[in-house]
């Protein structure tokens, strides 16, 4: 789990969900020195659930998403890893569905999708939605990736698959998530999908400026030309 912005009680609710569903789990919280009290909340959870269930692995400063995955993966002991934002954008109630889906088709990756079934978003205005849909359409046409949501981060990975993908993927930001799926397809891994709702917590700040769009397009074209 990464905590891009604010603390909430996802781990708490995650704990409750996992307990009631009888899943063996551990929660690894990567916090890149966010100033909002994530660490305090996480420490409290560590006390409640025990340090074998809640592993708090903070880093001194913001070092990027890719390295956060690698950092967290070092401490994961299970066969499967679910990656999610810990700011409550991603609801832990979907995790059992991810697991069900994985078992159903023995998938290497199960990706949450905002674009299918009951999936969706909250907190996006029309312009944001238009950009999202437009970018998604363009990606589907150019890359034909066989997955409907390429830029989301709420996913389940088989551990060795994630490890292999981390070695291959070099992009940053949105394109990083996209590259994970594209490379996975290239390497012959299977991808399943589960509809999720994404509740945007950080909308309105720096999330989708002109720079983001330009770097997205660059990344898309790079993948288009190289994969």
């Amino acid at each position: 789990m990464g905590t891009p912005t604010r603390p909430g009680h996802p781990a708490c609710s995650l704990g409750n969900h996992s307990r009631s569903s009888g899943i063996d789990f551990e929660i690894i919280i990567i916090d890149d020195g966010s100033p909002d009290g994530t660490q305090e909340v996480a420490q409290q959870l560590e006390k409640i659930y025990g340090s074998d269930k809640i592993l708090l692995r903070p880093r001194a400063k913001k070092l990027g998403l890719g390295t956060a995955y690698i950092h967290g993966m070092k401490y994961a002991t299970g066969d499967f890893i679910v990656i999610m934002d810990a700011d409550l954008s991603h609801h832990p109630k979907f995790i059992p569905e991810f697991i069900r889906k994985q078992k159903e088709g023995n998938f290497d990756i199960v990706s949450g999708t905002r674009y299918k079934g009951n999936g969706g978003v909250y907190g996006w205005d029309l312009k944001r939605k238009l950009i999202s849909r437009g970018a998604n359409f363009l990606t589907q046409v150019l890359l034909r990736p066989g997955a409907s949501d390429l830029t989301g981060s709420f996913r389940l990975y088989r551990k060795e698959v994630l490890q292999k993908l981390m070695e291959k993927c070099v992009s940053k930001g949105y394109v990083f998530q996209m590259e994970m799926i594209v490379r996975a397809r290239q390497l012959g891994f299977t991808v399943g999908e589960v509809p999720i709702s994404f509740v945007d917590r950080v909308y309105g700040e720096s999330k989708l400026g002109g720079n983001e769009i330009v770097s997205f397009l660059k990344g898309l074209l790079t993948l288009f030309a190289t994969t």
């Binding site: 905002r114 999936g119 978003v121 939605k129 998604n136 359409f137 709702s197 509740v199």
Partner: peptide, 13 residues
């Protein structure tokens, strides 16, 4: 069409 049918997850929020 997809823009018009993009789910707004009020309940989820």
């Amino acid at each position: 069409y997809r823009l018009a049918t993009f789910n707004d997850c009020e309940e989820a929020a």
